[in-house]
Design a binder for these strands. Structure first.
Lengths: 257, 257
DNA sequence: AAGTGGTCTAGACCACTTG
DNA sequence: AAGTGGTCTAGACCACTTT
């Protein structure tokens, strides 16, 4: 071998940026741009390796990371697919409220969701800041009431830029088949990959109290969630008011091994 | 090559149990048994590969998983070490309370911890069940008050089997240098690798209220945590009462990418 | 210079799914 | 039987840390 060429020529030479990260970035870009749509199957690993001019092992490393992030799904013998925010296993990545009597870490229950309000509005300053928008930018304001075991337990207030969901209307929102994030993904190509949440105790505002069957001012759990897409870009701001008399917020800190 | 032998003979033949998991299990066993003490350095990857009669790549896969679980720590050019539950980066794996004004996901503050009570007692039925103990088994009951920004914010009630921490006494507990989980690990070889938490709103009991400077019955956040060691074995039960007037519980759902 | 982990390759073989 | 991902190997070379 002459000198520094390993075997085949990689992407570039100077400022060599770690191949498997390049591959991963490109896969993410192709998912975002719709080349690989949600639920779609990726080329097999040998093909991907050829396209990127890297070895199969390097492709596997990139794919493995995206699988760990719930972006891709591998199925042995079938192929690798772009993850969808629809199905059971994805629902509870974001819905952390479960019945108190439920088994520890056990199967959880799907909520009944009722749309309470759908409006167009403008972003308040703190909302604009959190969502990286201009102050006063157009946003949707959506309110939902979620019921578990037949009881209204959660009151959600959602704020999201209209620019991200062009043409969304009340009918479209209500007639969705899966989750809200599933709608963002399937109808607008916007994939939620994570969220930051902050929880505290609050006194129920009159509207929340009425919706949840509580006295105004009753103590409730307040969850402020900033949902993120790739590269931690903020997408949606959501405040959930939860009646925790019979339900808990469940959190798993490293369920390793 | 004759037939089924790849190159060198692996651990066993029939019911071949996936080599990198075997290696991982053995590494965990060696950490639990003290062969590799907390903070100690592991043999280099070539040596480990020889010992386990597998390739370096297989060792690397096992080690990589344990690094992801915060059990091992890799340092390029230096070696691989058994993680310690002491340092800054480990503290906030379990302390999720942060000032509301703090930057989102930014650096957090270390608490001042004051021991409020230390007693020997017996496990109540629900405690015994959660901790997989016999009803009435001997336990320590420890209470702490944690302060942030000079204000008492958290009241912790800890229950843990005496059998797991033989000879622990109040002086030893108070004179620890690091965190409580750091003490479990350094003094008793007991490593906490994760926890399940359930949160809800509660009314402050008189003792908690007094300790946190609240009116009795004031709304507080109640966190019930079951801390786990390897193989999800339950170790410690802890109920934290939190005054969330100026502090939040922060949770990150998949901070991917 | 020597030793460590980090990246990447190339290829063998196994396990699973589908036609 | 053909195609997919899953495991494992053996070895090259790079980046970093320490002596």
């Amino acid at each position: 071998m002459p000198d520094s060429t390993p075997v085949s020529t990689p992407v570039c030479r100077a400022d060599m940026p770690i191949l498997y990260r390049v591959v991963r970035r490109q896969l993410i870009a192709d998912i975002r741009s719709g080349v690989f749509p949600p639920g779609g199957m990726l080329p097999n690993e040998t093909d991907l390796a050829r396209r990127f001019a890297v070895s199969v092992g390097t492709v596997r490393r990139a794919v493995t990371e995206l699988v760990a992030d719930n972006v891709l799904v591998r199925q042995q013998g079938r192929g690798t697919f772009v993850g969808r925010l629809d199905r059971e296993r994805d629902m509870f990545q974001f819905l952390k409220i479960a019945a108190r009597n439920g088994a520890r870490g056990g199967a959880r229950e799907f909520p009944d969701v009722r749309l309470h309000a759908f409006a167009r509005s403008r972003a308040a300053p703190h909302e604009a800041q959190a969502l990286a928008l201009q102050a006063g930018e157009n946003v949707y304001r959506i309110e939902n009431v979620l019921s578990l075991q037949g009881r209204a337990v959660i009151h959600d207030r959602i704020v999201i830029a209209m620019a991200l969901l062009p043409g969304l209307d009340r009918r479209m929102f209500e007639s969705r088949s899966g989750t809200i994030y599933g709608l963002y993904q399937s109808a607008f190509g916007l994939t939620i990959v994570g969220a930051d949440e902050r929880l505290r105790v609050d006194a129920a505002a009159p509207d929340s109290a009425a919706l949840l069957g509580l006295a105004p001012g009753a103590p409730v759990l307040r969850i402020e969630r900033l949902a993120l897409t790739f590269d931690r870009q903020p997408v949606e701001l959501r405040v959930s008011i939860v009646d925790t008399r019979e339900f808990d917020y469940v959190s798993n800190l490293q369920p390793a091994n």
